[in-house]
């Protein structure tokens, strides 16, 4: 009996494997940054076999620090990429044919930070100050916000660390709640020693992480993409419910990629990411892009780009957002 059952299982697995490889080419997903808890849901979906269960062969890759994931989409080395809404929309305005298939983040995590004992106490104090800001994208909303308040500032591009801020080489710095802000804490700065100005408090609550594919991929592999989004959501749910296990897997992933892995920091990041993605509340997680958020992102981009191609005018919410899940 036992050996019979065992043989059956082997047979089943063989067939399953065959059918997979026969039917499907792999689905390559690229995050928009190095491995970290920001992408925990996708790791868990893969780790727990949710992708496999959905009949998908998903490969997760990460771009190096100096490369934008959008390039992978462009050169075809990734089918799906995770991008900030504003980055993706900017690319779309510049004639890159990508579409949003799921909006993961629900709020902006961007925050201006200054030292509480420094010269910047209120928004008005931003005037004539040096503000550190990410180099290479995602600077649109903070910049638009400053512009809206008629403030003249000196923008200082920052690659990755918070050291310039810590050494007081700049007065302010744009940070992510779930990332740089906690790096300050983990460098010995206490929250009460900092002033924070959250973008969402100043009318620029533009959500961030979303999943993007080429228009063509959307048309050709709709079913697979839908399965990917569903399985990924399951992965996120799992991460939400199994925090410690998820942290372990994230840390392992980071170590494997030789990225500096700090448990305390990843814990903070995962808890904040879950909050920003709407997993912490009682409501069921949705992947819907709100039209109002789209509009706001569009306005911000148009204000920052004076030389948009003519095609940019044709972009509408409906052409940009192609939801795969019926919610």
């Amino acid at each position: 009996m036992k050996s019979n059952r065992f043989q059956l299982i082997i047979l089943f697995l063989l067939f399953a494997g065959l059918s997979l490889s026969a039917q499907q080419k792999p689905l390559v997903f690229s995050t928009h940054w190095l491995p970290q808890a920001q992408f925990a849901g996708y790791y868990m979906a893969q780790e727990k076999g949710y992708y496999k269960d959905a009949g998908l062969d998903v490969i997760i890759k990460h771009p190096p620090a100096n490369l934008n994931a959008i390039n992978y989409l462009q050169d075809g080395s990734a089918d799906i990429v995770s991008l900030f809404l504003i980055t993706a929309l900017d690319a779309r305005l510049h004639d890159f044919d990508l579409v949003n298939i799921a909006q993961m983040s629900e709020h902006s995590a961007v925050v201006f930070v200054s030292f509480a004992d420094g010269p910047v106490q209120t928004l008005k104090d931003f005037d004539n100050k040096k503000i550190g800001i990410w180099e290479g994208g995602f600077d649109e909303s903070p910049k638009t916000m400053v512009k809206h308040h008629n403030l003249k500032v000196e923008w200082v591009p920052i690659l990755s660390s918070v050291n310039l801020f810590l050494m007081k080489g700049i007065d302010l710095m744009t940070m992510m709640w779930y990332n740089e802000y906690n790096q300050l804490y983990l460098s010995g700065i206490n929250p009460d020693e900092l002033n924070t100005f959250s973008l969402s408090d100043y009318g620029f609550d533009i959500p961030e992480d979303g999943l993007y594919v080429k228009e063509a991929t959307y048309q050709d592999r709709k079913a697979e993409l839908q399965a990917f989004v569903e399985a990924s959501l399951k992965g996120w749910q799992y991460a939400n419910q199994n925090f410690d296990e998820t942290i372990d897997i994230v840390l392992n992933k980071m170590r494997a990629s030789k990225v500096s892995a700090n448990e305390a920091h990843q814990r903070w990041m995962l808890s904040k990411i879950l909050e920003f993605q709407g997993f912490s509340g009682d409501q069921e997680k949705k992947t819907q892009l709100m039209k109002v958020d789209f509009q706001k992102a569009l306005e911000v981009l148009k204000e920052n780009n004076t030389d948009l191609p003519a095609t940019a005018k044709e972009i509408t919410f409906e052409t940009f957002y192609k939801p795969l899940l019926i919610e």
């Binding site: 050291n163 810590l166 804490y185 983990l186 460098s187 010995g188 500096s260 892995a261 700090n262 448990e263 305390a264 920091h265 814990r267």
Partner: peptide, 26 residues
């Protein structure tokens, strides 16, 4: 380091990964 990061440590996994502040949390 200045940021409290472990630069040398008998436990190699600490080096450049954990700081005195992150261990305070851990």
């Amino acid at each position: 380091s200045r940021n409290g990061m472990a630069i040398t440590h008998p436990d190699r996994s600490m080096i450049m990964n954990e700081s005195i502040f992150s261990n305070s949390e851990n």
